[in-house]
């Protein structure tokens, strides 16, 4: 059985905390699981905490961008929180600025940002 990243539901949002280096398959699995969870629950937001991630490459950043667009299609919003400085500079040098993805410093601020985004959207 493929290992999975657990998805928690917290204050009307789905919370994912990535603590291990994400292999490609695990990342693809997470995207699918999040889509299914959004469809199933009443949650209208996703918070992905990547403060435990040492490395994000172009593959994973594409998956993260896809999760954000998918959420919007499903009438929800996604916020990426806790990106490490070394990861941020490397992604910028790679040319991956994730323009369509909302971000926040930590989970608390991520939740606040999510509420603000949901208040703006119709």
């Amino acid at each position: 059985m493929t290992p999975r990243i657990p998805i928690l539901e917290l204050e009307g949002a789905l919370l994912v905390t990535v603590q291990v280096d994400l292999d490609d398959q695990l990342a693809v699995q997470l995207e699918e699981d999040l889509g299914a969870a959004l469809a199933r629950s009443s949650a209208r937001g996703i918070i992905i905490d990547i403060s435990g991630l040492e490395l994000v490459d172009t593959f994973l950043s594409r998956i993260l961008a896809q999760i954000a667009s998918m959420s919007r299609v499903l009438g929800a919003e996604a916020v990426l929180v806790g990106m490490r400085p070394a990861v941020a500079v490397t992604l910028v040098e790679l040319g991956m600025t994730l323009d369509g993805v909302s971000t926040a410093l930590d989970i608390d601020r991520g939740i606040a940002r999510l509420h603000a985004l949901l208040a703006e959207s119709p």
Binding site: V81, P85, A88, V89, L91, V92, T97, L98, T103, L105
Partner: peptide, 12 residues
């Protein structure tokens, strides 16, 4: 621009 982009990725 790169610094600004990196800050945004971190949520600042």
């Amino acid at each position: 621009l790169k610094t600004v982009a990196a800050l945004r990725l971190m949520g600042a």
